[in-house]
């Protein structure tokens, strides 16, 4: 009995030593970033207002300001890598960037390799209607304005068979039509945020949800820990509220 206990303790001790000095010791990801002094952020600058290249060739947007706030709190300089959307995860996995901040949808199947933050913006399809009027009730069967061919049109056809869809050519036209005629429409929340207030419209309930999160490499766990804990501080700060107001407007 005593021998079994000894062997068990020895194995536990060896495992602990291996974890502390071998497995744990290999992860110097945070030390390397600190030595470098720069936080390399991957984003696809083609999705305003989150990130877009302005007339001077500079990347601007909500994600840029968020990345800047994060880098400052980490004591690092911000370095942005403008990468096509489909290459973002490869760039993270290959170590070309330290973190992705690019209105990135959460993907459950990537969580073995990717550490996601809590969502910092929830996009998806939302009702839009004239400010001061309420949501359409469950039995509403009047017209609903949507962008032709879009997911809003698909959803209206599938989930709201009793309504009459009015199809226009863009989400901007949906909002313009509602501002002119009243009634109800369905657009993506990010499109609505910037435009509804100016047109006397209001954003209603979500019909679908698409959360955006910051993504770090799960295998660089110490760096991911630093990024996520610091990001949590940023997202609770007044600075973050100001960033949101600047890029998304008061409606969001």
């Amino acid at each position: 009995m005593r021998r079994v206990a000894f062997v068990t303790l020895a194995l536990l001790g060896a495992s602990l030593l291996y974890y502390v000095f071998v497995a744990g010791g290999e992860d110097d990801s945070w030390d390397r970033v600190r030595e470098r002094g720069r936080l390399r952020v991957g984003m696809d600058a083609s999705f305003p207002p989150f990130e877009v290249v302005d007339a001077e060739g500079q990347v601007q947007g909500l994600d840029v300001d968020l990345a800047d706030a994060l880098a400052r709190r980490l004591g690092l300089q911000l370095e942005i890598a403008n990468i096509a959307f489909d290459g973002l995860h490869d760039a993270l996995a290959g170590g070309e960037v330290d973190v992705l901040i690019s209105a990135l949808p959460y993907e459950a199947q990537r969580t073995q390799d990717v550490r996601y933050s809590t969502p910092y913006f929830v996009d998806g399809l939302v009702w839009v209607h004239a400010a001061g009027t309420g949501e359409p009730d469950a039995g509403y069967s009047g017209p609903v304005v949507v962008e032709a061919g879009s997911e809003a049109a698909m959803l209206a056809r599938d989930r709201l068979p009793q309504v009459t869809t009015v199809e226009v050519m863009s989400e901007g036209e949906v909002l313009a039509r509602l501002a002119e005629t009243g009634g109800y429409g369905i657009v993506t929340r990010v499109s609505a945020c910037a435009l509804v207030a100016d047109q006397g419209l209001a954003i209603g309930q979500h019909l679908t949800e698409a959360p955006y999160a910051v993504a770090a490499n799960a295998r660089a766990s110490r760096l991911a820990d630093e990024i996520m804990s610091t990001l949590a501080e940023v997202l609770e700060s007044d600075e973050w509220m100001a960033i949101r107001r600047r890029w998304l407007g008061e409606a969001c």
């Binding site: 959307f85 032709a148 061919g149 050519m169």
Partner: peptide, 16 residues
């Protein structure tokens, strides 16, 4: 293709 963020994409109505 009518992906909202792909450089070679068109709007959904155009795609249709």
């Amino acid at each position: 293709n009518d992906h909202p963020r792909w450089t070679r994409a068109v709007r959904p109505a155009q795609r249709t």
